[in-house]
Amino acid sequence: MILFLTFVFYLSVFDESWRNVNWGDKQHDLDYVKNYKPHIEGQQLRILLHGPGGAGKSSFINSVQSVLLGRMYIQALADNTFHGCFTKQYSTFRIQRENPETFYSFVFNDIMGLSQQKGVLVDDVKLALSGHVKEGYVFNPESKLPEENEFYNKSPTVNDKVHVLVCVVPADTLPTMNNETVQKIRDIRLEASRLGIPQVAILTKVDQACLEIRRDLKNVYRSKYMKEKMQKFSADVGIPMNCIFPVKNYHEEINLSDDTDTLILSTMRHLINHGEDCINRKAA
């Protein structure tokens, strides 16, 4: 039995990782993320997370905060049992530094999940991209935010507008994602492209999608299954492979893990780079 399992393992993983990750050396990316500051004075990098309900958008925000603080931290409320869209309103999350009164130069916006029923409307996500949705707006699955509403921002500043659009999708349910959700993701991505906003995808719950990754997170870029699913997702929604990042969020652990931190920090470094490029292009 042991020989059989070993044989199956080697059939399902590549001999070498197909993407380089600095396992065991997270400090380099940690310093990069912590020291990031936009070149433009007073500029704030805004990252908008969207995707199916229960994908792990709030958990990713909490995981980033935990990694940067060096301890578990819960800021964005997350639901451990998916019964629909847990996040109902447009929320901005500033990431706290070690000093409670100071924050990093990037912020996350969490948004109601894309669902077939009672999910956020594509039109509302498009409004958020342009900075027209104010903090605290409770999404209405039946109709988009009207201009006369008090939560409609008629004159968004450069800091209100989104600089990176991130599609968060659970890897374990990726094969069963319905066509309607895929089309919504494509529609939102096309609007972001029109606005000159870079798009990135984060695949969460990779340990639940693949046994080899569950056994050892370092297999994330050796797993043939994961690469195949990433390629399929890339082809379906149009996001290039080099803009898709698999991660494992913290959701049941009480202590941090260097391997989990490494994937999160590597992803954050790329989000920051894409966002900085967007800021500089719009300022030119």
Rank of each mutant, 00 (worst) to 15 (best):
Ile2Pro: 07
Leu3Trp: 08
Leu3Tyr: 09
Phe4Ser: 08
Phe4Asn: 10
Leu5Asp: 01
Val8Tyr: 04
Phe9Gly: 04
Phe14Cys: 07
Asp15Thr: 13
Trp18Pro: 05
Asn22Thr: 09
Asp25Met: 12
Lys26Ile: 11
His28Trp: 12
Asp29Met: 10
Asp31Gly: 06
His39Gln: 15
Gly42Leu: 01
Leu45Asp: 06
Arg46Glu: 02
Gly54His: 00
Gly54Tyr: 05
Gly54Gln: 00
Gly56Asn: 05
Lys57Phe: 09
Lys57Trp: 07
Ser58Gly: 02
Ser59Val: 01
Phe60Met: 04
Ile61Leu: 05
Gln65Val: 10
Ser66Ala: 06
Val67Thr: 04
Leu68Ile: 08
Ala76Pro: 01
Phe82Gly: 13
Thr87Leu: 11
Thr87Ile: 15
Tyr90Asn: 14
Thr92Leu: 10
Pro100Trp: 02
Ser105His: 15
Phe106Met: 11
Phe106Gly: 13
Leu114Trp: 06
Ser115Pro: 10
Lys118Ala: 14
Leu121Trp: 13
Leu121Asn: 14
Leu129Ala: 07
Ser130Asp: 12
Gly131Cys: 10
Asn140Thr: 13
Pro146His: 06
Val162Cys: 05
Leu165Lys: 11
Pro170Gln: 03
Pro170Cys: 03
Pro170Leu: 00
Asp172Phe: 10
Asp172Tyr: 07
Thr173His: 04
Pro175Asn: 03
Pro175Val: 05
Asn178Gln: 01
Lys184Gly: 02
Ile185Asn: 04
Ile185Arg: 03
Arg189Ala: 08
Ile197Pro: 06
Leu211Gln: 09
Arg214Gly: 09
Tyr221Asp: 05
Arg222Lys: 08
Tyr225Trp: 00
Lys227Cys: 00
Lys232Asn: 00
Ser234Phe: 00
Ser234Ala: 07
Asp236Phe: 08
Met241His: 09
Met241Phe: 10
Asn242Glu: 14
Ile244Val: 15
Asn249Thr: 09
Ile254Lys: 12
Thr260Trp: 08
Thr260Cys: 15
Asp261Leu: 05
Leu263Ile: 11
Leu265Val: 08
Gly275Ala: 10
Asp277Pro: 11
Asn280Ser: 13
